[in-house]
Simulated scan of single mutants.
Amino acid sequence: MNLLIDIGNSNLRWTRHGDGCTWDLSVARHSGGIPLDLLAQWERLEPPERLIVSNVGGQDVAAALTRVARALWGRSPDFLHTQAAFGGVRIAYEEPRRFGVDRWLGLIAAHAHTEQACLVVDVGTAATFDLLLADGQHLGGLILPGVEMMRKSLLMGTRIPRIEADPAADPWATDTGPAVAAGSIHALAALATRLFDRLAVEAGRQPSLILTGGDAERIRPALDQPSELVPDLVLQGMRRVVEEAD
């Protein structure tokens, strides 16, 4: 049994992988460390053969995970790094290590999942948009602040009071709180639409749109195109890497 662990900027997702293991996605807020409730869950597990890790959450949480893994199981985690070409996917970046390992794994999973060009949108603390052709060539991507970061940056830089509100279904709002809430949702959805249309021209046919990340469901209703929600996309990519390496 292996543990597959996806450490994002805010959340840690994990599952067990191996013969006889059920693929169950678990999510915990990490806050730069390993939460006590997660530690309690891991203490009840049989010792894993390997811990395979995707980490964009920083060195503090990586160090905390390493300490926990050594204490519980006498093992050190294997941290994955982006490769220029793997699983049929070829990264557009000249320096692959500068391309987030979570984005790389998401593309590997998306390419295995669909035989057509696809736009992969990961909406978390940051929102990333990556364009992939059917042959596995990555065209590049864009990054924006995520929903909450976009709202916080606006509120911190203005005198607009913090008003909790659900985003409006319409592309405009009639009060300040809903305007801020809806603006963050529709900004991300509008960029997804623009990139989707450009990818359709580049690919010569309609691409697919894959959503992942903690806030993916928040932007989904605002999208103009049909989309597929894959909450464990990064972990699916990790599974591909592990199985191909074996």
Rank of each mutant, 00 (worst) to 15 (best):
Q137I: 03
P226V: 05
I91N: 12
G141F: 10
L51G: 05
Q59G: 11
V201K: 10
T212M: 06
K152Y: 07
L195M: 08
T82H: 10
P207Q: 06
R90T: 15
M150S: 14
P77V: 09
L39P: 00
S10A: 10
M156E: 15
D102P: 00
P48D: 06
S153G: 00
L105N: 05
G88V: 08
A134P: 04
R205A: 14
D246S: 13
G32S: 08
L209I: 04
H17V: 12
R220I: 01
C118M: 10
D102H: 02
P35Q: 04
G204V: 05
A69G: 08
L144D: 02
H138N: 11
W172A: 09
E115T: 14
H186S: 09
V121A: 00
L233H: 01
D37K: 13
V147H: 02
P96S: 11
T158G: 01
M150Y: 02
A84T: 13
L36I: 12
A168D: 10
S153L: 02
V201L: 06
L191H: 11
T125D: 06
G87N: 01
F129N: 05
A28G: 00
W42C: 09
H111W: 08
R16T: 14
P207A: 03
H138Y: 10
P77H: 08
S227R: 03
L195V: 05
G237P: 03
L80Y: 08
D60E: 14
E148K: 14
D19M: 10
R67T: 15
R159V: 05
P178I: 03
P178L: 05
E49C: 12
D102V: 04
T174R: 15
A181K: 06
L12W: 10
F99Y: 15
R90Q: 13
A192M: 01
G20I: 04
T193H: 13
E43G: 01
D170G: 05
T174K: 13
L191N: 04
V61N: 09
G146L: 01
A200C: 01
H138G: 07
A192T: 14
S184M: 14
R90A: 11
H186A: 09
G58M: 09
R159C: 04
A127K: 07
L51R: 11
A110L: 11
V242G: 09
R44A: 11
D19P: 13
I219D: 00
L191D: 01
L211Y: 11
L65H: 11
E49K: 15
L235P: 06
A189G: 00
V121Q: 03
I108H: 02
V201T: 12
W172K: 05
W14K: 10
D24G: 00
N11H: 14
G106V: 07
A189C: 00
R198V: 04
V230A: 04
D170L: 15
Q41Y: 10
R13A: 05
L45D: 04
I160V: 12
L188Q: 03
A216D: 06
L36M: 13
V120F: 03
W104Q: 07
G8H: 12
D135A: 05
L139P: 02
A110T: 15
A165C: 04
V120Q: 09
A169Q: 14
C118D: 07
E244M: 15
V123K: 02
D19Y: 04
A203L: 08
T174S: 13
W23P: 10
P178W: 08
